[in-house]
């Protein structure tokens, strides 16, 4: 599938999902289906799916110790070793993992290769992916934490604190959140990066665009319902609390845009375990990251090694000693 077809097919898929929920509630009145049944099913798929994927990965043996390194390994005592770039103990692995998970260190090292006239190839630092990625993930995290105000009653004070910092500028009523702007901006920039860089566009598949458009759809529908349609927050919170206490109350009178938002979120979390979004769990299980670079100092035994049947020279000689002597081959033991 070429780049354009990938993009269009993903766009159509997300638009269709949005339309299904919009008309499903607005025209047919399937409030309970989109408000109660689908979210529960999606959450169940998400939880079971993620646990299944993790266990599935954990069942695969790692035959070699294969950390990727970019620093001095520990060797002689007078050569300074770099425990973060080439970890030689568990603390090094934890430190490296922490920087990877929280600061996306390997994206920070991203480079681009360009052919200049000559032809000469040049390599240069390319930080855009890191920048957009970190904007995206942290604003998404803040948005999810802010949503706890609907999921929890009474609302924990940290949610209150995050919300007031996030709405610091008090622009418009209801307040536009900084994280909302960063989030939409980051997703848009990630999308633009994908379509403007020819190499990235070439390797982009519908799955790449689908996740982007789905998340963009969630962001847009969320901002629309907050700042434009102004859905009935009381009804939304009552529904959310009823779901989180397992006493679902069939919702009524909430604007369809809310169900578009909820349905796209449901699709996202149900799709999560089976897609590239599983990098959230996968980063912890990457052998190139979570193993220490101690190949020289510690023996690593391949866990799928079967017990090899050995036949030593002593045993061989015991078996054939008579024949060996007969033809004059020297033997160790007489």
């Amino acid at each position: 599938m070429n780049a354009f077809a990938s993009l269009v097919s993903a766009l159509i898929a997300v638009a269709a999902l949005a339309a299904i929920s919009w008309f499903g509630v607005g025209a047919i009145g399937l409030d309970s289906v989109f408000g109660v049944i689908i979210p529960y099913i999606a959450l169940a798929i998400f939880i079971i799916g993620v646990v299944y994927r993790i266990v599935d990965w954990a069942r695969i043996p790692v035959p070699f110790r294969i950390p990727t390194t970019c620093g001095q390994a520990k060797s002689l005592p007078w050569i300074k070793a770099d425990n973060l770039e080439s970890p030689y103990n568990t603390w090094g692995v934890i430190g490296r993992m922490f920087l990877e998970v929280f600061l996306f260190r390997s994206l920070f090292r991203n480079t681009k290769a360009e052919l200049r006239e000559g032809p000469k190839i040049t390599y240069a630092s390319a930080k855009w992916l890191w920048l957009f990625g970190i904007m995206f993930h942290y604003s998404f995290l803040i948005i999810i934490l802010r949503h706890l105000r609907f999921f929890m009653e009474p609302i924990p004070s940290f949610v209150d604190a995050i919300t007031s910092v996030d709405g610091f500028f008090q622009i418009m009523v209801p307040t536009v959140f900084i994280s909302d702007i960063l989030f939409l901006g980051a997703v848009t920039l990630l999308f633009l990066r994908r379509v403007t860089l020819p190499q990235v566009r070439y390797i982009s598949l519908p799955a790449d665009y689908f996740a982007l458009f789905l998340i963009l759809g969630i962001g847009v529908s969320g901002i629309l319902m907050r700042n434009y349609f102004k859905v009935d927050l009381l009804g939304v919170k009552n529904l959310a609390i009823s779901l989180f206490t397992f006493h679902p109350v069939p919702p009524a009178g909430i604007h369809p845009i809310f169900y578009v938002h909820l349905f796209l979120v449901s699709v996202l979390i149900a799709y999560f375990p089976f897609s590239k979004l599983m990098h959230a769990g996968g980063v912890f299980l990457s052998p190139t990251r979570n193993l220490a670079n101690v190949n020289r100092s510690e023996r690593y035994v391949n866990p799928w090694n079967y017990p090899v049947k050995v036949h030593t020279y002593e045993e061989y000689e015991d078996e054939f000693r008579g024949k060996m002597k007969e033809v004059g081959i020297p033997v160790d033991k007489e």
Binding site: M152, L234, T245
Partner: peptide, 19 residues
């Protein structure tokens, strides 16, 4: 993972909330 995801369920447990 399970603790984080199901936190709202545990938090609301035994706190009947009336609108």
């Amino acid at each position: 993972f399970l603790a984080l995801i199901t936190a709202p369920f545990w938090y609301n447990l035994g706190r009947p909330s009336a609108p």
